[in-house]
Each structure stands twice: as C-alpha cells, then as structure tokens.
Design a protein around this nucleic acid. Structure first.
Lengths: 123, 123
DNA sequence: CTCTATGCAAAAACTTTGCAGGGAT
DNA sequence: ATCCCTGCAAAGTTTTTGCATAGAG
C-alpha cells in the first residue's frame, strides 16, 4: 500500500511519524494499540495520539476499546465484527459478514466478546 | 429484588456498601458506570471497585468498556446485546435476541456501536 | 514564509493498591 | 476472635494538553 497515495487529498501533511503509524496499521491484520507498536515506532506518545485523532477525523482509522484498558486502532475497512477474548484478550477480525437490522439505528461496528478457540477448552 | 437472597450462597459478606451497589444496578435498566452512581452512593471509590471485582468473580455482575473511557456494570442477565452510540455515548440494552454462530468460539457478549435514533439524523 | 507537526513534561481521567482501623459472622 | 471489609491517600495506566522548537508545503 502506498501511504503517500492513501493520505493524498486529505487535509493533513505527510510526515515520517504519520507514515510509520499507517504502515504499521496496514501491515497488521488485526487492530493494534499504542502498546502494541510503541517499541517499533520512534515518535513520542503525544505525537502518536494526536495523529490518530487526525486520522480518525479524516476517516482513515477506526478504533474501539477493549477489556484490557487499551484502545485499538485499525485502518478503516468495510465494517466487520471484532472478536475479543475475555481470557487472553486477543483481538481478531471476524470475516463472516453480519447483517443487523435495528430499526432506526445505524450500526458502525460490532464487537463480540467471549472465549476464543484456545481458551474455550481451558476453563 | 431481595439483595440478601441474591448474595446468599456466594462466598462474600453482606455489607451496606454491597447492598447499595446492587440495589442501584438492579434499579437501573441499563449498565451504569461509577460516574453514573457515585452521587447516589456513599462509599469510597476503592470500596466500590473492590466490590465490583468481587461481584464479577461471583458472576453476579458483568462489565464492558465504552467509548467514553468508563467501564459499565450491570447485573448479569441472560446474554443480550448492548448498543453504544458513538455520538452521544448513550448505552442501551438491545431486546431483540441475536444469534451468532462462530465455530469453536463461545460468545458471551455482543456490543453494537453506531448512531442511535436521535443522533442518526443529526450528522 | 506560514502554518502545522513534534517532543517533552505536566496534567487529566479512571482504576488499583497499601495500610490501619472497623465490622460481619 | 477471626478474617474480611472499609476509608483515605498515594500510586498506576492510558490518553490529553501546553508550550517552545522544528519541519512540510
């Protein structure tokens, strides 16, 4: 993915910090928290969070809260459910499309919580 | 609801603090955060959170994180989805039962995020 | 050149922990 | 009488803000 092209036409400047955040999010195939990537990026946390805010304003990035007190970020894709394991806290993107029909409500994200395959048999 | 009966057989003592937390959660028909009820209970926040941990260990109370950085608590009922509005942060219990069938996974909670009826038309 | 982005440090918001005294069984 | 529970204060976590400097367009 070409980050430069991805950011083009958005009203934000192209900086090294922004490129490295977006590259990490593109490379991961699951949502990441600041903790997940802080070892692999060099910017200050203030820069990270300020850029995430910009990305979200532009609709490039989406986020949600997990059980582990971290906020998780991913490149905005067509809406898909997320599964959070309440034992090991792993987060997975669910591929099966889900249709919901709540009258008058507009669904933007679906989060499923429970036990993943590895944890369901452990107790 | 009789709190004394509710707590009986659980390995925790019946105290004023615990009774008042559980009464508030029973009376509300939606999940509550510490912020929601701190004006109406007299205990210290440490006591509140420690008791919530006990309740969760006993399976009496369930919780999840919202967008507003608060954790929300409710009496454990038969699993039902929650709707969180990404505009006004209101949380509602969804009555329509939802069936999910993810092979090998055990679903415990479903959180839907989006725009509620009031916010969907505002932009 | 101008306006936005960055780093550092401090603050903010929510939750947890240590400790000494009080209370339920 | 014995543990468990409580309040207070302090510490811990994650995210945000203020301010002066650096950098993109």
């Amino acid at each position: 993915m070409n980050i430069e092209k991805f950011i083009k036409n958005k009203k934000i400047k192209l900086t090294d910090a922004r490129i490295s955040i977006l590259e990490k999010l593109f490379a991961a195939h699951r949502p990441l928290s600041y903790n997940d990537i802080k070892e692999h990026i060099s910017m200050d946390k203030a820069t990270f969070y300020r850029n995430i805010i910009k990305f979200q304003e532009e609709g490039l990035v989406s986020s949600f809260e997990s059980n582990d007190k971290n906020r998780y970020f991913e490149i905005t894709k067509s809406p898909h459910p997320h599964f959070i394991c309440t034992s090991c806290n792993i987060i997975e993107c669910v591929q099966e499309p889900v249709v919901f029909d709540l009258d008058g409500y507009q669904i933007e994200d679906i989060i499923l919580k429970g036990k993943c395959e590895s944890c369901v048999n452990v107790k």
